[in-house]
Design a protein around this nucleic acid. Structure first.
Length: 734
DNA sequence: TGATGAGCCATTTTT
DNA sequence: TGGCTCATCA
């Protein structure tokens, strides 16, 4: 049978046992996705299960799509109920949420919407906005929601702490606002879905009967409410396969509950366990180090990865002087390995915190090494995009006060803060939405004649958009919004470089809408907005060019990925493990994080720490991470202080690998190149860059050494800083 | 209503 | 260090 041909014994066992509950403990790189997809295919093809009777839950859309693709490539069907917890829940809710008192046109609040609601709540309660900072409060509320602790209980059990009592008040008001705005946050999608299933027998029965087989990927990352969701649904047939790895549980701080996987056997009766320990990704040298480190954890199930991949090169650890040297070390290794036929996309640099990316960025940029940062600037976080989305949200859900506030004066239409404050006051007093205030003449008469007219204009404009939302397609509606609000016209009037870039982004968003329309034939505006909210930023952002580049990211974002060569940088005690985790006694999760990082590597792994690290404008001395000592004897230690400052000058210059051919950075005097003059560009001039394409000079800075730095906004959307002495910029005429 | 500068803060972030 | 927010002033 083709679904088991290429599997090892354990994997076969996991695929062929289709009845009952099964826990697959899958080590890193042990082929868990293959097990899930083959099992789904096997069920459909051999056991005649309808594709729509299979529910498979993942944590990312990317994982969901990969699963769908893999099944489709085997069977030519795409099971539609493969998705994230959140997308599955929103689908269930979109159908039946009216039964629990919400309306079907609910909107989903993303993180920044949530922060806005919290800020407003703190303001309304007149709490200190420093002490009750939105970014501090949000994780608390989210964690509580994940654990299903309501504001009342929270306040009761924390009666002695003023802080927590007040957090409870914010939480309560936050929940109220969301409800009144007809909005659900990410946690609500789960909470309300579970509530719906629990209170509406008919709905529960329907789904219990529908889903004959349930799969959950990354089970170690489920939280309490997610556990309850799958527990409820699986009660119908009891056929549930969960796949996970305790050692890769790195989201405890977000409420993931490791006991879900530890207690699986207890919670699901007559369950079987399959242990996948054969690793197909890494060399045995790499695995040995991973096994060594993780063995120091107490809270785990014994597991030891092995491989038949062979020993490979030793894992190297380099203790370096400072972060600059570290960046140069990485750079020089990349140069070295490139000579051995590795390409840019084979390399990934993993660090504990985003702030650490900077050193590498600078070093790479100077030498023209292509790189991409995961978790960098985000298209969908841009003001203008959020504005357009807010218009759409308000169009389908006039109760959305967050969206209302966002767009009521954007573009500027003379409705200022004072007016909005007054509107808010009326809305709160009468328990209606901001938009509804505009429909009551009595309320409008509170404003000056001029303001009243402005408000009415806004109301009627939104009214027209709302009416059109009924029948226009997604792309047409976006066009309608842009047209009626005069969004682009207002930007055109500004006539600045920045405004022009915003116009480009708005147009780009139109393309996104068009793409959506083409790929989702009967996709409604609801579906579009849901997708916008639920897609992670990484998935949303289009790959900028497809040239191979070195990847820079946090260890967290690296989960689930693999690269031939991994650099684990910043391995210092206090950085990784982070000092906060050490203080809070979360060292085991940090160790798992370390394990995740190690197991991303296929062939080569380089670990580095520095003695002196400058961060936040201060120089601090560090000791090497305690995890280094846990890695064992096979680690090849280099403490010789190979000076990578010296090293780089010779090596880099004699290793020309830069794509644009300019390697003059380290020479004292920039050598004239074939590129036309770049030292007299003015702001506003159009230029061409070999890698980045066409753009416009936005800013010119004269540096201390006399060199000029150009800030250029490229048509592709990126803003780059380029040094006149090395950047291959060409002036474009016209 | 915008521009400017002082002050503040700074893990990890699948949705 | 540097990026962002908020207060203040023109």
């Amino acid at each position: 049978m083709r679904y088991i041909e290429s599997l090892n014994e354990r994997q076969k066992e996991a695929v062929l046992n289709t009845e009952g509950a099964m826990l697959v403990l899958a080590g890193a790189g042990s082929g868990k996705t293959k097990v899930i997809t083959n099992k789904i295919s096997y069920l459909i093809d051999e056991k005649a299960v309808y594709p729509s009777s299979i529910l498979a839950i993942t944590f990312t859309n990317k994982a969901a799509n990969e699963m769908k693709d893999r099944v489709a490539s085997m069977l030519d069907v795409r099971p539609s109920w493969i998705g994230t917890f959140h997308s599955v829940c929103s689908r269930i809710l979109r159908k039946d949420i009216e039964r629990i008192g919400y309306s079907k046109n609910f909107v989903i609040y993303d993180r920044s919407d949530q922060l806005t609601v919290i800020r407003d709540a703190v303001k309304e309660l007149d709490f200190n906005s420093q002490e009750y900072k939105d970014t501090k409060i949000l994780p608390i509320i989210s964690k509580l929601k994940g654990q299903q602790i309501n504001p009342h209980d929270y306040q009761k059990s924390n009666y002695n702490s003023i802080f927590h009592r007040k957090v409870g008040e914010i939480y309560e008001l936050y929940e109220k606002r969301l409800f009144l705005n007809n909005a659900l946050d990410f946690d609500d999608l789960l909470i309300k879905a579970v509530y719906l299933l629990k209170t509406e027998e008919e709905v529960l029965k329907y789904y219990q009967k529908k889903f004959q087989h349930i799969f959950v990927d990354e089970y170690q990352d489920t939280n309490g409410i997610q556990y309850e969701f799958i527990k409820l649904l699986s009660k119908g047939y009891g056929n549930i396969t969960v796949v996970g790895d305790i050692d890769q549980s790195i989201y405890g701080w977000r409420g993931a509950d490791i006991s879900n996987i530890l207690n699986f056997e207890r919670d699901f009766k007559d369950s079987s366990i399959v242990l996948l320990e054969e690793n197909y990704r890494s060399t045995s040298n790499i695995l040995e180090i991973a096994n060594n480190v993780i063995s120091y954890n107490e809270e785990r199930k014994d597991k030891n990865l092995f491989t038949s991949n062979g020993e490979g090169a030793p894992v190297e650890y380099h203790e370096l002087a400072d972060n600059e040297e570290e960046a140069n070390f990485v750079l020089s290794k990349i140069i070295e390995l490139k000579a051995e036929a590795y390409k840019e996309s084979d390399f990934a640099i993993l660090y504990r915190t985003n702030a650490q990316s900077r050193n590498f960025e600078e070093a790479f940029f100077k030498l023209g090494v292509r790189y991409r940062i995961i978790g960098g600037l985000k298209f969908y976080d841009r003001l203008e995009i959020k504005d357009i989305i807010a218009y759409l949200k308000l169009a389908i859900n006039p109760s959305d006060d967050v969206a209302f506030r966002r767009v009521v004066n954007s573009p500027k239409r003379g409705i200022g803060q004072t007016t909005v404050d007054k509107l808010t006051e009326i809305a709160i007093k009468n328990e209606i939405s901001l938009f509804d205030v505009l429909y009551v003449d009595e309320f409008l008469s509170n404003f000056s004649k001029r303001t009243e007219n402005l408000l009415k204009n806004f109301r009627d404009m939104m009214g027209a958009i709302r009416a059109n939302a009924e029948f226009l397609s997604v792309k047409e509606l976006v066009e309608d919004v842009i047209d009626r609000t005069g969004y682009i016209r207002a930007l055109e009037k500004e006539d600045t470089v920045e405004a022009r870039s915003r116009i480009e982004n708005v147009k780009e968003f139109l393309t996104v809408a068009l793409n959506f329309e083409m790929t989702n034939e009967d996709g409604s505006i609801f579906d579009f907005l849901t997708q916008m909210s639920l897609l992670s930023d990484q998935e949303k952002s289009e790959d900028e060019g497809d040239l191979p580049s070195v990847t820079l990211m946090t260890v967290h974002s690296a989960k689930g990925l693999e690269f031939p060569v991994i650099f684990m940088v910043g391995m210092e005690e206090g950085i990784f493990p982070s000092s906060l985790s050490i203080e809070e006694g979360n060292i085991e999760e940090e160790r798992r994080l370390c394990y995740v990082a190690i197991t991303r590597a296929e062939k080569r792994l380089f670990i580095s720490s520095v003695n002196l690290r400058s961060m936040y404008g201060k120089n601090t001395y560090f000791r090497p991470s305690s995890f280094i000592a846990e890695m064992g004897d096979s680690l090849e230690v280099h403490k010789s202080r190979a000076n990578y400052r010296e090293y780089k000058e010779e090596k880099f210059i004699s290793n020309p690998f830069s794509y644009t051919g300019e390697l003059n950075y380290f020479k004292k005097k920039p050598v004239e190149k074939t590129i036309t003059k770049t030292d007299d560009l003015q702001v506003g001039e159009k230029v061409n860059h070999k890698k980045f394409g066409n753009g416009m000079v936005v800013q010119v800075k004269i540096k201390d050494d006399g060199d000029k730095e150009y800030v250029v906004a490229f048509d592709t959307g990126g803003i780059k800083r380029l040094l006149a002495s090395i950047s291959p910029l060409e002036r474009l005429d016209g």
